[in-house]
């Protein structure tokens, strides 16, 4: 770790000022400290934001409001989460470990860095760390990498589970920064790697996530998060799917679907949602719709199985959601 100073921000305003002057926010620290120890992250000034009043979780009418500093574990078990958007709780407890969920903030969760092993290794080329240095994963170990939204420069997946659920539910986030406040969909937080894989998100310098709003959805209880992995727990998703469906006598009136482990960012599947509209919740129908998810997929040497696994995971997630009374 390179030496740094750390100061606690007494207010959001002061935190933003300190960040505008070049400081880095730290909340749970589970990503940042890990990567600082590898010297992948090299901040020289940390702003501890844990004292800021952003830990709230509450309902506003049908909407679920989550403060950016609420911990994963708190959000997962909160009565309003379970009542309004149970799939968020489900996605949260499938992530990381109980200890890490007690530490990691919701804002930090959304801003996790990618899990590509080469990204962590300073002695391996990585376009995300050093633009133009090359991608080690494309011809190396890439079993966990994305098949959608990749570029020749980067194919790493975003590791968050809850982001997948939030994207499916069309959650928005409120951020504050030196230029003021703005609100935008969580989905728009993430960039595709393209020719600029070093730019992962759309936050402006000094911007701080303050709150996540998950709009109410009449059918939000008919939802499942299915995470597929070789180990039963404490492993990143090979493929994960958040499925939310509105059923009317066995016919899908509307569906929301997003997947993790498949794309370079949490991946909403609008075309599949469209294809499901008005169809019966039956295996063959679901399979036909799910297959469209991998159109244009670009697998690498080690992740071709995801082209098969992704549609199957989607089908199962939809079926599981459909089984909910």
């Amino acid at each position: 770790m390179i030496p740094f100073t750390i100061t606690q921000a007494p207010s959001t305003h002061e935190a933003i000022q300190a960040a505008a002057a070049g400081g880095r926010y730290i909340a749970g620290g589970t990503t940042l400290i890990d990567l600082m120890r590898e010297e992948v992250e090299r901040p020289d000034r940390l702003i501890d934001i844990n004292a800021l009043p952003l830990k709230h979780i509450r309902a506003e009418g049908p909407d679920l409001i989550i403060g950016a500093l609420a911990r994963m574990s708190e959000v997962a078990v909160h009565p309003d989460t379970r009542r309004l958007h149970p799939v968020i709780g489900e996605a949260l407890i499938e992530g990381a470990s109980p200890q890490l969920r007690n530490m990691a903030s919701m804002g930090g969760n959304l801003l996790q860095r990618v899990r590509c092993p080469y990204f962590r290794m300073l002695d391996a080329p990585c376009n995300k760390r050093i633009p133009g240095s090359g991608c080690s994963a494309i011809d190396g170990l890439n079993i966990g990498h994305a098949i959608l939204g990749t570029s020749d420069q980067c194919a790493a997946t975003h590791p968050s589970d809850v982001a997948v659920a939030l994207v499916a539910l069309e959650a928005t986030m409120r951020v504050q920064g030196p230029q003021g406040e703005r609100t935008f969909p969580v989905e728009e937080l993430y960039r595709l790697p393209g020719d600029t894989p070093h730019l992962e998100h759309t936050l402006l310098p000094g911007e701080l996530i303050v709150e996540i709003r998950v709009p109410g959805l009449s059918y939000s209880r008919r939802a499942r998060y299915l995470k597929v992995r070789d180990r039963a727990s404490y492993e990143f998703a090979l493929i994960a799917a958040a499925a939310v469906i509105d059923l009317d006598g066995g016919v899908i009136r509307e569906a929301r679907l997003a997947v993790g482990g498949a794309g370079t960012r949490p991946w909403r599947l609008r075309a599949v949602e469209q294809a499901l509209k008005g169809k019966r919740l039956e295996r063959a129908t679901l399979e036909a719709a799910a297959r469209t998810a991998v159109e244009g997929a670009r697998p690498l040497s080690g992740n071709q199985y995801k082209v098969e696994l992704l549609p199957r995971t989607i089908v199962r997630a939809l079926e599981l959601a459909g089984e909910i009374a």
């Binding site: 180990r231 727990s233 404490y234």
Partner: peptide, 10 residues
Amino acid sequence: ADYLMPVNLD
């Protein structure tokens, strides 16, 4: 996290 060994749930 990348070299997997059984956890309790396994």
